[in-house]
């Protein structure tokens, strides 16, 4: 017993001496916390010292502080946390070729056989549920794998989002492996997810609300404008037919040959050209006016629902629009 106490004192002294040079270079806050932690440790108040070593290390990461923290966890029997810190220290010392590497490995190897293990077996998974032990989330990849835990009671929680559905407690003992089986599907069924609130139905029209009086003015205007446009399109079609007739005359073999025309042939061609051009622009204007008329008509308020369509179409030398629908 005396030998063990002497060894601990020696270790603490070695750690303090090792940490001292770097501690001098720490920011003032980290050093102050470190000194306070050291005083607590010297007084045997390891439970109070560990949080301070941790705070100092998080403020200013130094290998000496990390070694003190690992040792502190080991003193209060938080073996899993000590093991993690010793591992971190081994990596650090190896990277820096620190002469304490051998001693750190020796400390870590003494912790390993004492570590309690916890195996969480999930028999049937549930996609919307998650598992945590203490405050550590367990990803699905860790199911069935021995995980290092601190000795004592390990609390395992099954949650859906922020809501904890079930809590299990497992006693973890030094050097032993505890197992816990969870049927997440059964837990999910036992605690069904709250149903989503149904979408609001479309508000129904109020039958008591008086209807706006039907005004046919816009519809009438649309019909008149559309009729004017349609008349122009039909007139354009007539002019184009006249142009085709004149083209036929100009293409007679005694009228034109390879664009070379007799005076009579040229006259027919010129007349055909004039008819075609007038018909062309009249047709374009007519289509525009017709489209305006149809638009005015279709956007007019009606007593009943109206379904209609306007589809322009093109063909070589021709263009137009188709109008259809159901109304009245």
């Amino acid at each position: 017993m005396l030998a063990r106490a002497w060894l601990c004192g020696l270790v603490a002294l070695a750690i303090v001496v090792a940490a001292a040079p770097s501690a001098r270079a720490q920011p003032a806050t980290a050093e102050a916390i470190f000194q306070a932690a050291k005083d607590l440790a010297d007084a045997g108040k390891w439970e109070d010292a560990c949080p301070k070593f941790k705070a100092s290390y998080e403020l200013d990461r130094q290998l000496g502080t990390l070694l003190n923290l690992a040792n502190c966890y080991e003193q209060i029997n938080k073996l899993a946390q000590a093991w993690v810190r010793w591992n971190e220290a081994i990596e650090w010392a190896g990277r820096e070729n620190d002469k304490r590497l051998g001693w750190i490995k020796e400390r870590q190897s003494k912790v390993v056989p004492r570590l309690p293990k916890l195996v969480v077996n999930v028999t049937r998974p549930a996609p919307d549920l998650s598992i945590r032990h203490d405050d550590t989330p367990l990803p699905p990849a860790s199911y069935g794998i021995p995980l290092a835990v601190d000795p004592g009671v390990v609390v395992v929680r099954v949650s859906r989002g922020d809501q904890v559905l079930e809590t299990r407690e497992v006693k973890a003992e030094e050097g032993k492996t505890a197992e816990l089986s969870l049927d997440l599907t059964a837990i999910a069924k036992k605690h069904p997810a709250p149903a989503k609130p149904p979408d609001k139905p479309d508000p129904k029209p109020d039958p008591d609300k008086p209807k706006q009086p039907y005004d046919p003015t816009q519809r009438t205007a649309g019909i008149i404008v559309g009729a004017v446009g349609l008349a122009a399109v039909l007139a354009a079609a007539g002019l184009e037919i006249g142009a085709l007739v004149k083209k036929g005359q100009a293409d007679e073999p005694d009228a034109c040959v390879n664009q070379i025309c007799s005076p009579k042939g040229l006259e027919a061609a010129e007349q055909g050209k004039t008819l075609a051009e007038v018909g062309q622009w009249l047709g374009i204007a007519g289509l525009g006016v017709l489209a305006v008329g149809v638009t005015v008509f279709l956007t007019a308020p009606s007593e009943d629902d109206t379904a209609a369509w306007l589809e322009p179409w093109l063909a070589p030398g021709l263009a137009g629009a188709s109008v259809g629908g159901t109304w009245w």
Partner: peptide
């Protein structure tokens, strides 16, 4: 669209000459 509607061209009534 306008090219298709250029009926005089389509009907080949342009560029004719008086011999």
């Amino acid at each position: 669209f306008l090219g298709l509607l250029a009926c005089a061209d389509v009907l080949d009534l342009t560029d004719r000459v008086d011999a």
